[in-house]
Design a protein around this nucleic acid. Structure first.
Length: 890
RNA sequence: AGGCGCGUAGCUCAGUGGGAGAGCACUACCUUGACACGGUAGGGGUCGGCGGUUCAAUCCCGCCCGCGCCUACCA
């Protein structure tokens, strides 16, 4: 149980510490407990995934929050799990089959699904294992998978209930179809990207040979499915053409010219629009309005169907060229121009998505959206940062029905059966007979559900729903949902809707959204670009704690954060600093018993650090309560480094090294406070940097005789108002100023640290209060030690010729420079100072001369300005005096 | 097209209606007995531009410029 001379090597202990926590069951939550519950369900990563910075970020934020609440003594559950990722996983296994020269159709559905399960068993927990390296304090006993029996049951239950309530329906609609994945997609799974295209114009000849009508299109091949040309009914140019027929130039059919005020903007292009009702959402609506024919000209592979006559069998690209060539050959081409438009691509494979007429299952969203809007509006669920609330409302208010069926084999099969009699049966378990005709010829729907359908149930399905389990009772609604803003619609909103509908309550009290991790140049990290930073490489190089501290510090940034390796390195140095501070403490304490911290300290430094420790505790707790991890980190970093290490530890050294028995009381008090301050700081830091703090605590701070004590479940420091002492803080600040003043003089003249300086405090009457305590030998000597000076005092009328003068608070300090001074350099320093003070005085005087300022500004502000002015004027006088004295030095 | 957000030191970013901050980088000095993964001191900014409100604006309001993201069916 000692750090000794070990240097900070995070790789040496991180895995060991993680196992240590597991062995002690530190992460395990109780189903029933008197303690208040705190619960986060993890956003389940895809089983096909590999850990990236986004995972590391979300894991760090959640783990920090969870560890904080665990240390607050709450019954804390962080529930882990993963997602079956329908399309992605099926693709992975299909690729493997392709390598073996076979495919899923050759294998058959049952064998294929078994094959996917096998893949899942073999490779599907990679990302889960990787998470352990980050230190995630999840309750592994409760790990869930969306395809588990329990969760699958929840999926069927929800499907049936929604069906029974009329919120799920099956219909033929124009949906997004990915010809590569060969499945329908929801609107959200289509990403639109501005693409340079071509607006290609051609003429449709009128059937009676009386002329032509010119239309423009970005997709000429769709003309094979045109069943109308629409014009605006009020458009003078075309009004008389409405109702006349067009002769399809490539196919043996005719179709009408119609008037449609909704579809047509007469100011765009020629004012005439070709209408392809089976392949364009607007045209689909138009087709319905006018009873047009719906001709499907593309099949599931995006090849031209028989409807396309001579073009049948061509894929859409080839068909486009062929149609253009043919129309040009017929002399119907009427020009082309570059055109910018948004092309939809499959989120998974980036294939251009095809609007296709197809029979699919849908969820009616509006009745679900309304309660989800209300729950956020009335504050049952709070979204942070608040700005996302508007986005949430905006999307839900304009929500479209959700296409939930996917033409895949891997996923939750839709619990619907079709009877030969035409009846559709939706049931929790496979029906044996048709309830309508009694027939047994029932065939289950081939399709599976969108993966997000099961994800939407995650906060309650993982806790045992629909069973009224103790865990569900204890932890639902969960406390916090922490995830990336990019899945606000995909996931968060859908969980809200499903949670409210199925349980009657919100799924979580707070939604905390974080941004995207970008590389140092601000580009999205991607494997193909090769700029993805592997979190595990980072942790190997800098340690997990350094990465965690970095991510937590960055996490305030709403939309994106540029991950700079230099910053991770900087926090590794911070970890090293902490490590060495504990080493110092350990060596200072030795094995001698350390007394308890007294109610009141007699040493100024001890009083001060307890004061600052308490202020820091309050600040960190407030920041963590408000999910401002960046603020918590900033407070912890500056306190630990710049106060605990830079000032307090340096301050304690004489007291700790002093062997004089007369100061034994001081030494004991200092040992007690040092230990307490370091120990409390480790507890404050633990949620963010758990490995380092646990290792140090176990080795150097765990109380003797409590072999089982674990920092991870130790109580989080509480605010101790009785340890506040603003007066001590102010006094210690004067010491810091005093030291700073002497150090500045030293640096200014390049006086080596080894040269002991004299320093004379001028006993000015204004500073009588300060002098009363300051001049105590134990204070003055130790202050002098911090800047290599021996303090003495002089009266204000003393001759300070040849001294450099600095000011600490109200206190002038004179450093005799005879023999070590470059007069010219000191002159420059003083002139600069004079200029600066002069400017400040000018500004303040101007403000104080302003009648309106005096009348309207609050009295305390005016008084503050007056005080500042007095101060600046004193300062100017002192500097002027210093210049005078300096000139006497030569 | 609409919505949201951003523009603060060389870089990455906090922040506030009354004295411009941090980290990194930079400069000078220092192997002082926790730590050179360190210490001390220091340089550097018209807080995007223009107006307005106010005694007072980097902060509130309007407009403009630049950038990013999201939503959207314009052929």
């Amino acid at each position: 149980m000692t750090i000794g001379n070990r240097s900070y090597e995070p790789g040496e202990f991180e895995a060991r510490i993680y196992q240590f926590w597991l062995d002690r069951g530190v992460f395990e939550a109780q189903d029933e407990s008197d303690r208040p519950p705190f619960c986060i369900v993890i956003p389940p990563p895809n089983i096909t995934g590999a850990l990236h910075m986004g995972h590391a970020l979300t894991a760090t934020i959640q783990d920090t929050i969870v560890r904080y609440h665990r240390m607050l003594g709450e019954n804390t559950l962080w529930l882990p799990g993963s997602d079956h990722a329908g399309i992605a996983t099926q693709m992975v296994v299909e690729r493997a089959l392709a390598r073996e020269g076979t495919n899923r159709h050759a294998l058959g559905r049952e064998k294929f699904v078994e094959r996917v399960w096998e893949w899942r068993r073999q490779y599907g927990s990679r990302i889960t294992e990787q998470h352990k390296a980050l230190g995630v304090s999840v309750d592994w006993r409760r790990e869930r998978f969306t395809m588990d029996e329990g969760l699958s049951r929840a999926v069927r239950e929800v499907f049936v209930r929604l069906w029974e309530d009329g919120l799920i329906y099956r219909a033929e609609r124009l949906i997004h179809w990915c010809p590569r994945c060969r499945t329908a997609l929801s609107d959200l799974e289509v990403v639109h990207a501005e693409t340079k295209g071509e607006l290609w114009s051609f003429a449709y000849p009128l059937a009676d040979g009386s002329g032509e009508i010119v239309v423009a299109t970005t997709r000429p091949e769709t003309m094979l499915g045109d069943t109308a040309v629409a014009v605006h009914p009020d458009d003078e140019r075309y009004r008389d053409r409405i109702g006349r027929q067009i002769k399809h130039p490539l196919l043996d059919r005719t179709f009408p010219i119609i008037g449609d005020a909704i579809l047509v903007d007469p100011k765009f292009g020629t004012g005439a629009v070709k209408v392809t009702p089976a392949h364009d959402p607007n045209d689909f609506e138009c087709g319905r309005r006018h009873g047009l024919a719906f001709l499907r000209t593309l099949d599931e592979d995006a090849r031209i169907t028989a409807v396309g006559g001579p073009f049948a069998g061509l894929d859409r690209e080839a068909a486009r060229e062929a149609v253009k060539e043919r129309l040009t050959g017929l002399g119907l081409f009427r020009g082309a121009k570059e055109h910018l438009h948004a092309v939809g691509r499959c989120q998974r494979c980036e294939t251009v998505v095809e609007p296709l007429l197809s029979t699919q299952w849908f969820v009616r969203m509006q009745p679900l959206a309304e309660p989800a809007i209300a729950a956020v509006r009335d504050g049952r669920t709070v979204i942070l940062p608040e700005m996302w609330t508007k986005t949430y409302f905006h999307w839900l208010e304009g929500i479209q029905d959700w296409c939930i069926s996917r033409q895949l084999w891997w996923g939750h099969r839709i619990p619907a059966w079709y009877c030969a009699c035409g009846e559709t049966v939706v049931a929790r378990t496979a029906p044996e007979r048709c309830p309508k005709c009694g027939g047994a010829d029932l065939r289950q729907d081939e399709d599976v559900l969108d993966t997000w359908f099961s994800s939407a149930l995650w906060p309650f399905s993982t806790l045992g729903w629909p069973e009224p389990t103790p865990a569900l009772r204890t932890f639902y609604p969960t406390s916090v949902m922490e995830t990336g803003f990019d899945i606000l619609f995909f996931w968060v909103a859908r969980m809200m809707m499903m949670g409210l509908r199925m349980t009657g309550d919100v799924p979580f009290r707070k939604v905390v959204l974080h941004g995207m991790v970008l590389d140092a140049q601000g580009r999205k990290m991607s494997k193909t670009r090769g700029n993805a930073v592997d979190p595990l490489e980072v942790t190997a190089k800098y340690g997990t704690d350094a990465l965690r501290f970095t991510l937590a510090s960055y996490s305030a940034q709403g939309q994106s954060m540029k991950l700079d390796p230099k910053r991770i390195e900087g926090y590794r140095f911070f970890c090293n600093k902490i490590w060495n501070a504990v080493r110092f403490m350990e060596s200072a304490l030795k094995d001698d018993p350390v007394p308890p911290v007294p109610d009141r300290c007699r040493d100024l430094g001890n009083t001060w650090i307890l004061h600052r420790l308490d202020e820091t505790t309050a600040a960190v707790r407030a920041a963590l309560d408000g999910f401002r991890l960046d603020e918590a980190c900033a407070a912890l970093y500056s306190f630990t480094w710049h106060e605990l290490c830079d000032w307090y530890i340096e301050w304690t050294k004489p007291a700790l090294y002093e062997r004089d028995p007369a100061s034994a009381a001081l030494r004991d008090e200092t040992r007690a406070v040092l230990r307490h301050a370091v120990e409390t700081t480790l507890r404050l830091l633990h949620p963010v940097i758990p490995f380092l703090t646990e290792e140090l605590w176990q080795e150097a701070l765990r109380p003797a005789g409590s072999a089982d004590a674990v920092l991870a479940s130790a109580p989080y420091p509480t605010v101790r108002a009785d340890r506040r002492d603003p007066e001590a803080a102010a006094r210690f600040q004067i010491l810091r100023d005093l030291v700073g003043t002497v150090r500045a003089v030293r640096a200014e003249y390049n006086i080596p640290p080894a040269t002991r300086l004299g320093a004379r405090i001028v006993r000015v009457p204004e500073a009588a209060d300060t002098l009363a305590w300051l001049l105590a030998p134990e204070i003055l000597v130790r202050t002098g030690n911090l800047c290599g000076a021996d303090f003495d005092t002089v009266t204000p009328d003393a001759d300070l010729a040849g001294h450099a003068i600095g000011v600490a608070g109200k206190l002038p300090v004179a450093v005799p420079l005879a023999g070590i001074v470059d007069v010219a350099a000191e002159r420059v320093r003083h002139d600069k100072e004079l200029l600066k003070v002069g400017k400040e005085i000018e500004g303040l005087e101007k403000r104080l001369a302003n009648r309106e300022f005096l009348d309207k500004a609050p009295a305390e502000v005016v008084e503050e300005m007056r005080e500042r002015l007095r101060h600046a004027q004193d300062r100017r006088a002192q500097v002027a005096e210093a210049i005078k004295r300096l000139s006497q030095l030569v």
